[in-house]
C-alpha cells in the first residue's frame, strides 16, 4: 500500500490526442503544471534562499549570499549532538524492525499465506491510529510501572517498529516476490539445505536490494518523525526534530540552514533508496 511502482511509461498516453491542434490545446497541461509545481517549490526555495543569504529584511530578495549559516550550524555542538541522537534512535529502530519483520515477511510469503493476509490488515494500524492517539496510551502504559520507558530513547525505537512496519513489510514482500523466493527455497531444500541454511545462504543474499530500499525509505520517514519524539521523550533526549522545534524562534537563517541540511540528507537517502525510478508514497505521513 505504501509503495507504488511507477507504471511503465508505455502505458501512459505519451502523445497528444489525434484531433488536437498542437499550437493551442496542447498547452492545457502545461498551464496546470506550472502553477502547481511553482506553488510546491516556493516554500522550499524560500527556505533555501534564506539559508544562504546574509540578510533578508523587508525586501523581495536577500542582500547577499553566504555560507556562514551552514558553517555556524555545523560548528554548533548542540546540533551535532542532536543529529547523533537522531541517528542513534533511527538506526536502532531500523535494526530492530528488520530483525523483527524480516522473518515475518519471509514466512508469510513462503509458508503461511494466512499470515500475509493478517499482516496486510495490521499494516493499516499506524494509519488508522494517529500518533497523537497512540501517545495517549503509551504515556500511561510506560510512564511508570514495570517498564518505565517514557523519556528514554528506547520507547522511540520500539514505537518506531510499528510505524515503520508498512514501509518495511511492503518493501520486503515486494522483494521476496520479485525473485520468487518460494521456488528458490524449494530448490535449496531439494539439494539438501536445511530451511535455516537456505534462508541465510540463498534468500538473504537475494534480498539485499529489497532490504536496502526498505531501510532507506523508513530512514527518511523516521528521521522526520516529530509527534512521538515530542510527546514521549521531548527535551530529555533532544533529537533533530525536537532541536529544530526548540530553536525555531531563533535566527531564521540559522534554522533555515538546519531545515535545508535535514532536507538534503533525506533527499540523498531517498535517492539511494529508489534510484531506479520507483515512486514511493508515504501514505498519511507524519504531518
Amino acid at each position: 500500500m505504501s509503495l507504488i511502482t511507477e507504471p511503465r511509461s508505455t502505458a501512459m498516453p505519451a502523445r497528444d490526442g489525434p484531433t488536437t491542434s498542437p499550437a493551442r490545446r496542447l498547452r492545457l497541461h502545461v498551464w496546470i503544471a506550472i502553477p502547481v509545481f511553482t506553488a510546491l517549490a516556493l516554500p522550499l526555495l524560500a527556505t533555501l534562499l534564506y539559508a544562504v543569504s546574509t540578510r533578508w529584511g523587508a525586501t523581495l530578495l536577500p542582500d547577499g549570499l553566504t555560507l556562514e549559516w551552514l558553517a555556524r550550524l555545523w560548528s554548533t555542538p548542540r546540533f551535532i549532538a542532536a543529529f547523533g541522537r537522531s541517528l542513534f534512535v533511527v538506526a536502532g529502530a531500523l535494526m530492530l524492525s528488520l530483525v523483527l519483520i524480516l522473518p515475518v515477511a519471509f514466512l508469510a510469503h513462503t509458508r503461511y499465506p494466512r499470515l500475509d493476509r493478517w499482516m496486510n490488515v495490521l499494516i493499516l494500524a499506524p494509519f488508522a491510529v494517529p500518533p497523537v492517539v497512540s501517545s495517549v496510551g503509551l504515556l500511561q502504559l510506560y510512564a511508570g510501572g514495570p517498564l518505565p520507558l517514557v523519556g528514554t530513547p528506547w520507547i522511540l525505537m520500539l514505537t518506531y517498529v510499528s510505524i515503520a512496519l508498512p514501509f518495511m513489510y511492503r518493501s520486503l514482500i515486494n522483494s521476496l516476490r520479485s525473485f520468487e523466493a518460494n521456488e528458490l527455497m524449494e530448490a535449496a531444500q531439494l539439494l539438501g539445505a536445511s530451511p535455516l541454511t537456505a534462508f541465510f545462504n540463498v534468500i538473504l543474499p537475494n534480498m539485499r536490494l529489497g532490504i536496502r530500499i526498505a531501510i532507506f525509505l523508513s530512514f527518511s520517514f523516521l528521521i522526520g518523525e516529530f509527534v512521538f519524539a515530542n510527546m514521549l521523550v521531548g527535551t530529555r533526549f533532544e533529537t533533530l526534530q525536537i532541536y529544530l522545534f526548540n530553536v525555531r524562534r531563533e535566527s531564521g537563517h540559522f534554522t533555515s540552514a538546519l531545515v535545508i541540511t535535514l532536507f538534503v540528507f533525506i533527499l540523498i537517502l531517498t535517492w539511494l533508496g529508489n534510484g531506479r525510478g520507483e515512486i514511493t508514497a508515504p501514505e498519511a505521513g507524519d504531518t
Binding site: V227, Q241, F245, R248
Partner: peptide
Amino acid sequence: TSNFAGVP
C-alpha cells in the same frame, strides 16, 4: 515534497 512535512 511529500517527504517534507511536520516542523520543517
